[in-house]
Write a protein that binds this DNA or RNA. Structure first.
Lengths: 205, 205, 205, 205
DNA sequence: AATGAATGAGCATTCATTCAT
DNA sequence: TATGAATGAATGCTCATTCAT
């Protein structure tokens, strides 16, 4: 093993560590004060590094926010796909999707705040994010519903896209209410509540 | 009509007109560039007045955004209550609520953008707004569902609050998708789609 | 008496009255908040007139301050000259000058504050004022001292100008201390204290 | 000398140098245009730095003015006390005080202007400054006069406080005349003129 | 003469980003 | 890599002054 190769590994790890530290610090700061009111020096301070060091890992404040979204979304999608591959029933799939959605955001309140608040804080971010990962997420839900319609477990008179949006919107609202709530409660169990209605509707049979 | 009353009217109208003009201009500008990236001079320019004039009608840029929300929400709530008073069936009531929600926002794209994007752009605004009008709105939905459960048309094993949030979240998502969409389509008809699922669920019976 | 003549007199009086009212109001406002922190609208408000009306009587905010100085100084000088004309002894003259100085400013705290504070708030005003009335005032003191030296009651080894400045400076300091003092006491009696030293010095004979 | 001590010194010196440079520049600018008419960018420009750099050393424009006063007054008081400690005669002490007063201000015309003009330009500053250093200064004069009365060289029928104010007022007036004068002359010698009268009075014996 | 709504120039301060060390 | 001092562009808000009524 060459000398440079030996020294590279820990260096790469260190680089990755500092990037991580900045992203974690930024998530915390953005969650507390909002993107526009957060100063780069706040992030640097929270991360325990000098202001200028931030720019060795990110090109701009804007890029930090993007990275937060990208990383979280990529991880969520990848993990989700892996889990869903092992489930065959469309109904069970949607159940796991809803659970994952609320588990992930419910496990990291700062991240949840950034997603619910900052992501929506500008059409610019929403569009960019939409292009990036959100569309893919919505598509997974849509396909699952499509499968269910084909397999006959879901009504065929509904547009899968609309169903997907409704499910997503309902879950999203659960998250928003959770981060705004003064009460502290586990978010994940709300998945069941949402699906009970989504699957069965509210009408008395 | 007395002389003073006659002369007062145009003055009041003028004041009101300029306030209106500023709010309209601000809605347009905020929708286009976002609150933080919008300059007061942009708003003044759009309204065709001098920068300083803005401050004769509003104390700060922040107050303008608040006024946009307050005015729109107050109008929506008041009109909604009036309409709902004439409907007795809970199911029909929810239908009208969903329609009104999408009609109102669908009729003014800029306003919709400001509501969907800026209102969520900060937990501060969300909380303030929540306290102001949003909570009341959600409550109207909740009560309607409660009525429906009591009258036996809605399932009794569902929490009205959760149902209300799900319906709101679903409608909200329709709006968000609509403002982000590159395609132009009427928003109001989505109310039916949402309610079809909300009422009946997605499962095959 | 012609119609216009009849109507002119009250009009002139009215004009003069409003000018007076503005100057009085401005003196009060300047005394309280300082020239730069006082708004023209503060002055108008205090005078009970509209902002714009101020500009029918004065060309600018700056001119108001000038007018306050000019009017007060002209009145002081003219009254002083009249009084002094009836006094022949230089010593008695200086006594009356000192008394007048402190009486006038001691009788109108607001005016005193404006004189002591605002007049010195800019070299510009000081120079202009110096040119206007202050130099004349100092000259009256100087001449009186000169007379006293010629008549043999004052020492001849002192420069009259320097004596005049010293007397003025001492009186001025009495006023400044008076306006800054948290205690309320009559200012005029300090004239005697100052002159006791000015005339006799502080050394034990 | 340790390594860290060596490396610290230039850094500290640099920081101190830039603060000094800003204070010097501000004194110059304030003297020329007055506090309110001076822009922060004027000060930065005069100091040869960027506008924002000013705020790395001072919290506000206001703080710069305060610092000018505080620093000059502290230096004056400290140096004065040291010198006076070596003088025992009250008469000689007052002589040195008067000389120091005029020497210090006579040596730095800009500083003198700021002291004479800006310090008096607002009751706010006067009060704050009064609390800070001026009261202490006046007290030193008063005590010296008190000593002189006790040792029998000064008349006992005069109030020390009033004497102190008179002396201060007289010196102050010398400075004010000096900065306003179009003629250039040394200020310090005026101390003798003032004391000649202060000590001996103006009356022929 | 009087009004007061409208104007728009003016300015202290902030903060993302750079760069010499 | 890391630092943090320095930069300077950017902007919300104020207020003296104007002018149509």
């Amino acid at each position: 093993m060459s000398r440079s190769a030996r020294s590279n590994t820990p260096v790469r790890a260190a680089v990755s560590d500092k990037r991580e530290a900045i992203l974690r610090a930024a998530t915390k700061v953005f969650a507390r004060k909002g993107y526009f009111s957060s100063k780069v020096s706040d992030i640097a301070g929270e991360a325990g590094i000098a202001d200028g060091t931030v720019y060795l890992y990110f090109k701009s404040k804007d890029e930090i926010l993007h990275s937060i979204f990208d990383r979280a979304m990529a991880e969520f999608i990848s993990e989700g796909k892996k889990e869903l591959a092992e489930i065959s029933e469309p109904e069970a799939k949607l159940h796991r999707i809803a659970e994952l959605h609320l588990e992930k955001l419910g496990a990291d309140r700062d991240m949840a705040i950034v997603f619910q608040v900052e992501l929506r804080g500008s059409t610019k971010f929403m569009r960019e994010f939409s292009a990036a990962g959100f569309a893919e997420y919505l598509d997974i839900i849509r396909e699952t519903i499509d499968e269910g319609q084909k397999s006959g477990v879901f009504r065929k008179d509904l547009k899968p896209v609309v169903c997907a949006k409704i499910l997503y919107g309902a879950l999203d609202e659960m998250v928003t209410n959770w981060i705004l709530s003064s009460k502290s409660y586990p978010l994940a169990p709300m998945a069941g509540e949402v699906l009970k209605i989504f699957f069965g509707g509210v009408m008395e049979k």
